[in-house]
Write a protein that binds this DNA or RNA. Sequence first.
DNA 1: TCGGCAATCAATCACTTGATTGAGGGCGGC
DNA 2: GCCGCCCTCAATCAAGTGATTGATTGCCGA
Lengths: 204, 204
Amino acid sequence: MSTHTPPLKRESSDERKLAIAQAARELIIEKGFEGLRTRDIAERVGINIATLHYHVPTKNALIALVAETIRDQFSAQSARRPRTGLSPLVQLRMEFEDQRETLLETPDLIVLMTELIQRARRDAAVECVMRPLYDYWVGQFVEIYAAGRLDGTFRPDIDPVAAANITTGAVGDHWRQSDTSIALYDRIAAELERAFLNPVSSKD
Amino acid sequence: MSTHTPPLKRESSDERKLAIAQAARELIIEKGFEGLRTRDIAERVGINIATLHYHVPTKNALIALVAETIRDQFSAQSARRPRTGLSPLVQLRMEFEDQRETLLETPDLIVLMTELIQRARRDAAVECVMRPLYDYWVGQFVEIYAAGRLDGTFRPDIDPVAAANITTGAVGDHWRQSDTSIALYDRIAAELERAFLNPVSSKD
DNA sequence: TCGGCAATCAATCACTTGATTGAGGGCGGC
DNA sequence: GCCGCCCTCAATCAAGTGATTGATTGCCGA
């Protein structure tokens, strides 16, 4: 299946772990945590179950590993976009554009995120990884809305924390829907912008 | 704890199925679908595994049964509030008040809903039950916002479908958070109202 | 009162599943 | 060459895990 070079062996430990995490991610997307089996992961990687356990001691550790890869991926993604100094409205639109891109290019990533957030409710190790990630995401919007209220871009009566939660909630919930259409996403993003803009401002 | 008389037997089939569904709901809330075991359900009801299988043929049928009890519960809840003829803003506030009540009185119900919606992604039987339920919920808000745009309560440039998805998304996402505080909910509801109200109207 | 049916259970099946064990295989260093 | 370490696997374990079987029990109508 996976490895087309049967005699090839001795993959470095880091590469193996990465391959294991990747296979686990795919299987979580396909079957959810309910259907996640260590054997299936090993098979997809093309290794023995014992080999998998050599690299990742337990199933819980494996799930934590998956959570970490997600965090790293989002951290890297976040670091790639320095947008300090930009106006709040431009920042908001850039956030929406980023989400849109993710929705189009890696919709599976979002399914995976959802599964992990759900899992976090009962798995402290996953909670520790996902909670800061989610809080950071909401925090981004809090800052944007707070700055935009100050400079008159957004409504003077806006509640930045509530607005940020509405924004991430709406976007996140749209992801969860099975029919995630980009058209609806665009309408939601546009409506969010109208919802928070200052009606008496000329900044838009 | 329906029957406190151990030697008593012969419970009607309907009552048994209800008890089984109730036990399943509790266990899903406690452990999620990953940790749901038919034996645990039987034990909680106080019956043998074979008896459980007598009433509910398979585990999947059991999960579908749980989904149906949720639907019935929400249908009954929805039927109990006839609010035709009320103004859009009053209707919106009543929706928020209903959600608030659920959040305070039966937060577990919301956890269960979330699990089922997640499950629906991979279980057609659950999807068939949950999808109409969710669509109906969103539809309620679409109607409210559309009516409110017409009579000038809400912004003339509001997109009722997008606004409805934002509303249900924000509320639903707030449910998903583990720290579901009523204070944050109130702020979100208040901000949603400000977000969609017509700034030049005097209807508020 | 007694046949028949609905409901129940102890015991068991066939299979799954996370994890372990012990025996190597390959490769770098000396 | 060969020692030692990192990596791999076949085989196996022990605890589940959904489902079935066949017998049993209480209730109701004839």
